[in-house]
Nucleic acid binder design. Structure first.
Length: 474
RNA sequence: UCCCCGUUAGCUCAGCGGCAGAGCACUCGGCUGUUAACUGAGGUGUCAGUGGUUCGAAUCCACUACGGGGAGCCA
């Protein structure tokens, strides 16, 4: 139990001469003839507390157990440090070893490790400098997100995680069932009989909270969701996860312009918050992971995003004189190579692209008067690609119904979505931000698997498992 | 899902048909205050697995497993 003010980050704020007790894990240890140094970290801040032990102060059997990885309690006096790396240090009087760590087998070394190796020891990587910083920034980012919306009066909405809505078109859903998979009930026509399942119909994990957010926006005006989302897509890239966290604000009386401005204000706000509160952590990323991170964040927080329409973006790409792997002409969706060109070469900062062709975007996006484009927007970030996707929603009942029918979607499944337009409809808009993608952008981390709290025994949960050879026989 | 690349000591990697290697970590020692300390010495192996080619395989071939990159899809 850590008493108030017991975190190492608080100890740094105390005056020299104070008697303090520090708790934490040994990061490194250095020994000289007459003095021992231990770097102690409790995760509360990037800076380690340097413990100084004069030879003979502590019993040898205690000191010998205080090796890299061990968990300690150290009592002593906070003193000015004559060394260069820190202003104060803890001169030890008393030490207790909660948990030793055998140096011969403890996998974390003082030297740098590859991310691939650290991923295999996901239960210990949290004690490394890099992952300490990742999860402190993730925490700050999450807090900043709530702060931004709460300051603006948005209602925080917990969208359901299990859903029986088959109207969500964002991606493949993980099934949720209590049926006996070895003995599935069948209907007369041989289909799986979901009437006999737990919810009486086919259920799955949510792929988006947007439709729920629309329900709430048309009652509470401005709302946002912030929660886990699941996609059973067979995506295997450093930018995709099967489970990730998404922030989805939805605003009544907002058009696409308002939506775009809010998205920009939002991104700048959370970046500024992290710059303000996680300076030491960001310096680590800048030094060890990507030496452009800090300057990029400062630049983005202080400058205006670019805005181009899809049509303008296509014109830029056509004039680029590149041999695109995917040829560019009006009507095609933007590919990774196109997004990268726009963000990394043309503008060198986040770019908002709006008004895409209706054919390549979802049915619920509001049709423009030209009847060719819809009020969609993507915020593209250098290196990450699409970080935000959003749109002004189609609020006109007849237009929405026609689009549902034209796309061959099951009209009956959208009855409630249509009723939102039938009774008291309002113009509204919203967007979705992937928390992990934002975290990648802020930290410079190159693989999305390194910004999530995963467990060693679930290491592969976030990757799709390769098909088992026996599967062909089933 | 498709296309590439990889798997050798705890970690990072070299070796690419003929004795299993280096740096770091680790162990023991030296050093009056170190900052991923410095410094001397020392031990470290299912060469991912299975099968094949060969007098001989870490090395060549096949399959499997796992990891990484790129693409598609998207956040």
């Amino acid at each position: 139990m850590i008493e108030k003010g017991g975190y190492i980050r608080d100890i740094f704020q105390k005056p020299v001469g104070t008697s303090v007790t520090a708790y934490g894990w040994v990061k490194t240890r250095r020994d000289s003839k007459g003095v021992h140094f231990i770097q102690l970290n409790d995760g509360s801040c990037f800076q380690d507390l340097q413990i100084v032990i004069d030879a003979g102060t502590l019993p040898e059997d205690v000191l010998s157990q205080a090796t890299t990885g061990a968990c300690l309690r150290v009592g002593g006096e906070l003193v000015e440090s004559p060394g260069a790396g820190q202003s104060v240090e803890l001169k030890a009087r008393e030490m207790h070893v909660y948990g030793p760590a055998d140096p011969q087998t403890y996998p974390l070394q003082k030297k740098g490790h590859t991310m691939e190796f650290l991923r295999e020891i996901a239960h210990l990587r949290t004690r490394s400098n890099t992952f300490g910083a990742v999860f402190r920034v993730r925490n700050a980012l999450s807090f900043a997100i709530h702060k931004f919306f709460q300051e603006r009066g948005f209602l925080y909405l917990n969208a359901p995680i299990i859903t029986t809505s088959d109207a969500e078109g964002a991606g493949a859903m993980f099934g949720v069932t209590t049926l006996d998979l070895m003995n599935l009930p069948r209907t007369e026509t041989g289909e799986i009989d979901y009437d006999r399942d737990f919810f009486g119909k086919k259920a799955g994990l949510t792929v988006s909270g947007q439709l729920e957010a629309e329900i709430f926006a048309l009652a509470f005006s401005n709302v946002y969701t912030f929660g886990p989302t699941f996609r059973a897509e067979n995506s295997n890239t450093p930018r995709h996860l099967a489970e990730f966290w998404m922030i989805e604000p939805e605003m009544a009386f907002y058009d696409l312009e308002d939506n775009r401005k809010l998205a920009e204000e939002f991104l700048k706000y959370i970046i500024a918050y992290v710059l303000d509160t996680c300076a030491a952590d960001l310096e680590l990323f800048n030094k060890r992971i990507d030496n452009t991170v800090l300057s990029t964040l400062v630049h983005v927080a202080g400058s205006d995003f670019e805005h181009v329409t899809y049509t303008e973006a296509i014109a830029i790409l056509e004039k680029a004189g590149r041999a695109w792997e995917f040829p560019v002409h009006w009507g095609v969706d933007l590919q990774s190579e196109h997004e990268r060109y726009l963000t990394e070469e043309t503008f060198k900062k986040p770019v908002v692209v709006t008004d895409y062709p209706r054919e390549i975007k979802a049915f619920y996006m509001r049709l423009n008067d030209d009847e060719k484009t819809v009020r969609a927007m993507d915020v593209l970030a250098p290196r990450i690609g699409e970080i935000i996707g959003g749109s002004q929603r189609e609020e006109r009942y007849d237009v929405l119904l026609n689009k549902i029918r034209a796309q061959g979607l099951p009209e009956e499944a959208y009855w409630w979505y249509l009723e939102l337009r039938k009774y008291g409809t309002a113009p509204h808009a919203g967007f979705g931000l992937g928390l992990e993608r934002m975290l990648m952008y802020v930290t410079g981390m190159k693989n999305i698997r390194d910004v999530i709290p995963s467990h060693p025994w679930l290491r592969r949960v976030l990757n799709r498992r390769k098909p088992h050879p026996m599967r062909a026989l089933l």
